[in-house]
Design a protein around this nucleic acid. Sequence first.
DNA 1: GATTTCTATGGAAGGGCTTTCAGGAACTTA
DNA 2: TAAGTTCCTGAAAGCCCTTCCATAGAAATC
Lengths: 343, 343
Amino acid sequence: MTIYDIAREAKVGIGTVSRVLNNSPKVTDETRDRVVTVAKRLNYQPHAFAQGLARKRSNTLCAVIPFFTNYFFIQVLQGVQETLAAVGYDLIIHGANTQAQLEDYLDHSMRKGRVDGTLLFSLKLPDRFAEVFIEKKNPLVLVDTFHPSFDSIRVDNTEGAKKATEYLLSLGYRTIGMLNANLSSVPAQERLSSFKATMCTHNVEVRDEYIINSSNTKNDGFSREAGYEGMAEFLRRGIKLPSAFFVSSDIQAIGMIAALRENNLQVPNDIAIVSFDDIEIAKYFNLTTMRQPMFDMGELAVKKMLERIENPSAPISSINFTPTLVVRSSCGANKNYVLNDNR
Amino acid sequence: MTIYDIAREAKVGIGTVSRVLNNSPKVTDETRDRVVTVAKRLNYQPHAFAQGLARKRSNTLCAVIPFFTNYFFIQVLQGVQETLAAVGYDLIIHGANTQAQLEDYLDHSMRKGRVDGTLLFSLKLPDRFAEVFIEKKNPLVLVDTFHPSFDSIRVDNTEGAKKATEYLLSLGYRTIGMLNANLSSVPAQERLSSFKATMCTHNVEVRDEYIINSSNTKNDGFSREAGYEGMAEFLRRGIKLPSAFFVSSDIQAIGMIAALRENNLQVPNDIAIVSFDDIEIAKYFNLTTMRQPMFDMGELAVKKMLERIENPSAPISSINFTPTLVVRSSCGANKNYVLNDNR
DNA sequence: GATTTCTATGGAAGGGCTTTCAGGAACTTA
DNA sequence: TAAGTTCCTGAAAGCCCTTCCATAGAAATC
């Protein structure tokens, strides 16, 4: 079932068939009708690869994400997928859990012609590939990561951490700790710095023993396990608990709550928590948290990409989303809610 | 950068280049070396579409899933993605939230040559498309759904619901309700029938007012909202609570718990719950639940698909996974028996 | 009515690969 | 030494499109 079949049946040339199928204006209505009718009757579908080969366009994007299990990415991906579906693009998803896997992917699988562009999530783009992307004019949009040569969509971690910290301060908490992810991650670094800076600005002491940087490397420490272990280990040390914690992600906060509960400590009565992300399950735990507009980020990433494909020489843009505070009851501010406990 | 460039540089023909790159045995070692060296130097990557066009093979699979946000699918997809990555296949993900969207996708996007096969999740395959798939010999593997003409991987809902119900009975519960998803969903139907049958087998009365079928259509009622609303509505009716509930999914159970808590009811003290799925967050809520091996199902789906591609005329297989009971504390069972999987 | 302009059309070229096919070189065999 | 094998190799054909180019016929111009 090819355009040749249609051409024969409709008694026209293949060029005309192609023009009709691509809505070229230079076709008589009469001819157009004949072709359309035959195409419909034969239930013709163009061969995507042949089109891709001829057009040098695939109508496909690739999303490279770390940690397929991470709710943050799932929610961003949802935005990506829905936006893409609306414009008839396909989405290829590629998992790259480590920097090495990313390089491997970029080396081997980023095959020319396969995709019109790549969305890279949260992973640092190695410099040697940056050059390749630029040289080959392969569109690249970065989400939750940065490189001066490419469009990027980011969350303002500094501002988010600042808001979170100031919220705790505004509630009167003065001994505040931070349960952080692995410091190898850039967002973890930024959130920590901003937390310290904000505390400093407000003349509140930051105590080193209240800073827990996860040593767990799974998901860069953005995991329930990391939160659980971080808090369990902290409690084992027997230090007096701070009155509140800023936690670098909801999922860690959930692990942390489990550890606290095992020690008969309640949130927010014994300790207040403000975390980061607002993943879907955050509300099940009544977490007060800094919301990242994940769906919107995915949507915007696609839009940026499509613009970039249309206009490769447009100036590079970098968009920052500022997280917004979502107040639930984990800081004790809203007494109407009872914190969801596990039982 | 094409095989022509390599051919020129290596002073061989394009056929030889192709043979080398495809590890054909009929090439001298000396020639092979020359070609490989040049290919490496030029950092050659074959053009996927040209290969696809010539080979009539895309090394790409498409997964059509409903409800991108559903944890069940996320976890199955993870199995799919990892298995696929290991064999160098790409994965295209397509969301189809409704039967109509599915038909739309099948009509338009299922373009010949684009993918080597399709994995269809949980959606009912319309008969008219079944014929098309068969006629075009387009490999199709069904996951969590069924059609006699295609390979399928399913969960034995009947057996799962039976085990769950019997577990509640074994703990001595005698007034047992069921909080079910939307009856338009086949799994919901199967789980309900089996629940009733099992109760009947054990001579325990099934009371109609204890059967809650969600009217919420989002995710076919497999959602937190559905669980919350179902229980809230039930409580509003003021009927005496049964001692236990079988719930058709973890996510509903989580919503149900929230509704109970708002009425100062505790799980398992006031009411016991056994649910279905064992999604990742089930353990955060200490849910006793029927585990579906989601990752394994994804993995197996891919394996089946690859087999089918290899051997299109192999007999059709249908594999049933039987859910296994995971005991946590939501049924109030002996605490020693509780899995300590908090970490 | 003759010439020019325009428009719709058919078909070739080209995109980059695989695979078939035919032929040349090296090697056997009689 | 001639004929038959075997093996490797180069190039053409084919995969299915899009797009360019040339042309025929219609329309417009003088």
